[in-house]
Write a protein that binds this DNA or RNA. Structure first.
Length: 989
RNA sequence: GGGCGAGUGGUGUAAUUGGUAAACACGCCAGUCUUAGGAACUGGUGGCGCAAGCCGUGGGAGUUCAAGUCUCCCCUCGCCCACCA
């Protein structure tokens, strides 16, 4: 037997495959039909950003994963497109250029060459003939072209925007270049490179109106097969919320305030209208605002803060009342104050809200400025026990206090103050003594202090955890509910006589456990009930209205509709999603193809003049005024207006890095086309004709790209679909994510930490096949795993084991029809032997498992099952060639080189990569005899072998006869027997 | 603060979805082979116990004949989002 030499084998087959082009996807013929009559399959990975750090072992994991899918599809008879390219515009290269003065083109060329070489050594079945690069003018010509289509349709527009500005570097910063640090008063942003605090600056920016597509981007998620968490991420980002716009009149003024709310049912509790500081009303009503000078001071303070400061979590909400202005609540004509506050965002909704105590932010704000609040909604409590209580219950205020008293150390009693009910439980009762902003516990504590003189009262949650646990252990019955609100009296240092006196006073009150209150009221959800009692102010769920005039008692959902109607509000849908800032004052990006002419205005560059090539510059630093370095290149800026031929200037902003990656999957289908971004026939073939879904069959990428990149490319795709330039509504049918590979020890792999593992090192010592198998085996594909060079040897041993099996091979007599094996281990013997049959069974089980696991990306368990098979084959005296070949086929997507070598050594002339995926035989998978567990009272006491189809009674008899079992059962009654078919039998004594 | 996910041997992890916990692999121990070392192969390897056996999936309760898996409470970690009315 030849020795396994991965170096020779791998480079040999990589050359051979490239020479024969077996991974080249076939485009359709001119009439649009498939060349090969095979169905198409388009599998996609996120194309890499070729950084100067080079490839590390984390990069290839997703490529290998999709490679396995793609290779399996080829064996299943698909015409597979599995392409790769470079997302090469990017900040690191640009910053490197600023620092060193090196041309990013040169750097990028070098980096992509390195990456390509590294990736090619792994034997991934990419179609390299379609390689693309976003920085190639032939590519970005079409990125610019698509931008012009946006411009034509009015979806690209210019707007003054605030950007992050580093005053030292004189450069606009992308959000990812701003680092946030905590300061005394919240958080602030700093320049990533020089640490200077970031300032705000207004700049005219190109915008793309993605909000026009918000609704469709949201709705169409129903149609695609993305992992649930990915859909959720998309939905959260788009942030759809249905609500109403309601006008509040202003007293003694013709002005109105339009507010947005999703909870119109809480309007009876409105105690103020709060505006964003930028709200137009502030300036419009200048003359009526009595404290305008103070207001102005406040506005200036707000203006100074950056967005980060303004929205940081630990920051106090601030605001100021607009004195002299009153808003009129349209539902009851109440006059309420108007405030401005920095936590109201001008860009969301209408930039104005009414405040109610059920909103946590409003509540906190009102508490801080000591505004008076009123409750308007409360939860409903269901009474299912008492037939006379038909409706859900409204619990009003009368008096429920929860108190815990000490008794030999701790006592536990929950206090209910109020009249005891007799017979029927009261349907309503009222919580008393709860003042503005005070919760039930505070109120109870205060009252008890006042009445009894107990000063050392504690809320159970204020005790150390260990004490709490002991406490609840001693009072198991109340544990479940009482742990939220128990009060503890600390009597340790008190005079005994004094305590007795106080306790007597306390006993004059009525003590009832809260469980009992809930129980007596038949309140089902006693936890909700209790939480509500505890903190009525911040109850935010759907409930029923209270103190709301004719709406009192109405469920909030119903009331919401009616109130909106009553006050003439308009039902609207709002989105969090904001338009996409589509320009940067930076060098390394696609120039935005627009010309400014003094007579004609903003003029798009004619399509025939595309691409607008990125000119060479000497200095990559933006200008002192913050324009892109292109602004210094006279030959670029100065041009002629395409319309009037007069003197004009070019736009010097460039596109953001997301631009090129928003449509790259379209270019792959026709990467050399110079008449269109891709030909129609190819698009229809590769994306499919199904307008509803269609698109790339399977797209796998990183978690970090499942919101923005995915959303942006869906947006572009839908736009192109509307222009009838792509055949499908959605770009990707199916999307999954992979987990990262971390450095040894579980930290991120990075050059600065010095824990980067270069895949080439691994390929050199262990081979690409070993590395591929290991990366798939190391853990679940969608989870992060720490790299371990120590463990990789296991994958190598597996490959070597497979290699050694060739020494065991014999022809399968029945299938080959050839004569006797000369070496007296005759084929008949092999064919009939039990070992042979068992091995064949195992093979078919493995085929099934691997086939199914690949579809779910459970590569780790697929590898594990093949390891078991390899071990069994190696142990066997003989292995049938045909069986071994089947094994090679299912292993080939994981380890393409070694399987190809073994395949050809067995005399096969055609590549294993285009053979066919084996099918498992159902009859060989079903076991006839199975081992089942015998349990006594749920504990395993023995095992027996039965025939699968045996009846419960027979299995029982067999089990009871078993020697291990007899001793347990003897002299005892059998109460019950549970038989789980083919698994276990449980005898309950 | 919100959302999502996770916690299982010394390590990476598996568990047919409520049915033998730890498959597979790394490591470790012993053996075979070898001049030696390594590689490879074979066997062993959750804890306590001489043993029968008992305990064991972050902690605590519960449902069940049966819980890693379901329910409730608590703790810890990771990711994403972050004042979205």
């Amino acid at each position: 037997m030849k020795e396994y030499n991965h170096l020779k084998i791998e480079s040999k087959w990589q050359k051979e495959w490239e020479k024969k082009g077996i991974y080249h996807a076939e485009n359709p013929t001119k009439d649009g039909a498939s060349n090969s009559k095979k169905p198409k399959y388009y599998s996609l990975i996120e194309f890499p950003y070729p950084s100067g750090e080079g490839l590390h072992v984390g990069h290839p994991r997703p490529y290998i994963g999709m490679d396995i899918i793609s290779r399996k599809r080829r064996l299943q008879g698909y015409n597979v497109l599995y392409p790769i390219g470079w997302d090469a515009f990017g900040l690191p290269t640009e910053n490197y250029a600023i620092k060193t003065g090196k041309d990013p083109r040169v750097v990028t060329k070098k980096n992509t060459d390195t990456f390509r070489k590294q990736i090619q050594s792994l034997g991934i079945s990419f179609d390299w003939s379609r390689e693309i690069n976003t920085t190639d003018p032939k590519y970005y010509k079409w990125t610019q072209w698509i931008f012009l289509q946006f411009l034509k349709k009015g979806l690209a527009y210019k707007k003054k925007m605030e950007i992050n500005w580093c005053p030292k570097d004189k450069i606009g910063l992308a959000n990812e270049e701003v680092i946030t640090r905590s300061t005394g008063s919240g958080q602030a942003g700093y320049c990533e490179r020089c640490g200077t605090p970031v300032e705000k600056r207004e700049k005219e920016q190109w915008m793309l109106a993605i909000t026009k597509y918000a609704d469709r981007l949201y709705k169409d998620l129903d149609e695609v097969d993305y992992l649930p968490q990915i859909k959720l991420g998309q939905r959260n980002w788009i942030g759809k919320s249905e609500g109403a716009e309601i006008d509040f009149k202003i007293k003694d003024s013709s002005e109105k305030i339009k507010i947005f709310t999703t909870r119109a049912d809480t309007i009876f509790g409105a105690f103020a209208v709060i505006l964003a500081p930028e709200h137009e009303l502030v300036q419009k009503s200048k003359s009526q605002i009595k404290n305008f000078s103070e207001v102005e001071k406040y506005l200036n303070e707000v203006k100074k803060k950056t967005d980060i400061e303004r929205t940081s979590e630990d920051k106090d909400k601030t605001g100021i009342e607009l004195k002299g202005l009153k808003a009129i609540n349209p539902v009851n004509n109440e006059e309420i104050p108007i405030w401005i506050a920095d936590f109201i965002l001008v860009q969301y909704g209408t930039g104005a809200v009414f405040a109610d105590m059920h909103d946590e932010r409003d509540f906190a704000f009102a508490k801080k400025y000591k505004m008076s609040m009123r409750q308007s909604v409360m939860p409903l409590f269901e009474d299912k026990v008492h037939p006379w209580v038909k409706d859900k219950k409204i619990v009003e205020r009368k008096a429920i206090h929860a108190v815990i008293r000490k008794n030999n150390g701790d006592i536990l009693l929950l206090y209910w103050k109020g009249e005891e009910w007799k017979g029927k439980p009261p349907v309503t009762f009222v919580i008393g003594g709860v003042e503005n902003g005070e919760n039930l516990i505070d109120a109870a504590m205060r009252e008890i202090r006042e009445e009894t003189g107990f000063l050392n009262l504690k809320f159970v949650e204020q005790l150390p955890i260990s004490t709490q646990s002991r406490f609840f252990a001693a009072h198991k019955d109340v544990n479940r509910i009482a742990n939220v609100t128990c009060l503890v009296f600390d009597l340790i240092n008190e005079d005994r006589a004094e305590v007795d006196k106080k306790e007597k006073k306390l006993h004059d009150w009525k003590f009832v456990s809260v469980n009992k209150v809930a129980q007596d009221l038949n309140i089902e959800d006693d936890k909700l009930f209790f939480n509500y009692l505890n903190k009525p102010s911040t109850f935010v769920g759907e409930g029923v209205l209270i103190d709301s005039g004719k709406f009192t008692g109405m469920p909030s959902v119903e009331a919401r509709q009616k109130i909106i109607k009553e006050v003439g509000g308009k039902i609207v849908t709002k989105f969090k999603l904001r338009d996409w800032v589509f320009s940067r004052q930076r060098y390394w990006g696609e120039p935005i193809p627009v010309i400014f002419c003094n007579t004609c205005g903003t003029v798009p560059v004619p399509e025939k003049d595309l691409p607008v090539e990125l000119p060479k510059v000497k200095n990559y630093q933006p200008t002192d005024s913050g324009e892109s370095p292109l602004a210094n290149i006279k030959s670029f800026v100065d041009t002629r207006c395409p319309l009037c031929k007069g003197k004009a200037k070019r736009e010097t902003d460039t596109m953001p890095n997301w631009a090129g990656s928003s449509w790259y999957y379209l270019r792959y289908v026709d990467s050399k086309n110079n008449k269109a971004f891709a030909g129609k026939k190819n698009l229809e073939y590769w994306l499919g004709n199904d307008q509803v879904v269609g698109g790339v069959n399977w797209y796998n990428g990183g978690n970090e790209h499942t919101t923005l990149h995915l959303l942006y490319s869906r947006f572009w795709h839908k736009f192109l679909y509307d222009l009838k330039l792509v055949p499908t509504n959605e770009p990707y049918m199916k999307r999954t994510s992979h987990g990262m590979i971390l450095g040894e020890g579980g930290v991120k792999m990075s050059k600065s930490l010095g824990n980067v593992i270069n895949p080439n090192e691994i390929v050199k010592t262990y081979g690409a096949d070993t590395m591929r198998v290991y990366e798939m085996f190391m853990g679940p594909f969608d989870q992060s795993v720490a790299w371990s060079t120590e463990s990789i040897i296991g994958a190598r041993r597996f490959i070597e084991k497979v290699w050694r099996i060739q020494a065991k091979l014999v022809n399968d007599f029945e299938r080959s029809g050839r004569g006797r094996d000369p070496e007296n281990r005759g084929p008949e013997k092999l064919f009939t032997s039990e070992a042979y049959i068992n091995l064949k069974r195992l093979l078919h089980k493995t085929i099934k498992k691997v086939s199914e696991d690949i579809e779910d990306m459970r590569f780790n368990t697929a590898v594990s099952s093949m390891m078991i098979l390899a071990t069994e084959m190696e142990k066997a005296e003989n292995v049938s060639v045909d069986d071994f070949k089947m094994f090679l086929k299912i292993l080939s997507p994981f380890a393409p080189h070694v399987t190809e070598e073994l395949w050809s050594m067995l005399g096969e002339k055609k590549t294993i990569n285009l053979s066919e995926w084996p099918k498992w035989e159902e009859s060989l998978i079903k076991d006839e005899e199975v081992k089942i567990m015998v349990q006594i009272n749920g504990k395993v006491r023995g095992e027996i072998i039965i025939h699968v189809d045996e009846q419960k009674e027979d299995v029982r008899d067999k089990a009871l006869k078993d020697a291990d079992i007899v001793k347990y059962v003897e002299g005892k009654d059998i109460k019950r027997i549970i038989y789980v078919k083919g698994r276990l039998i449980n005898i309950v004594l």
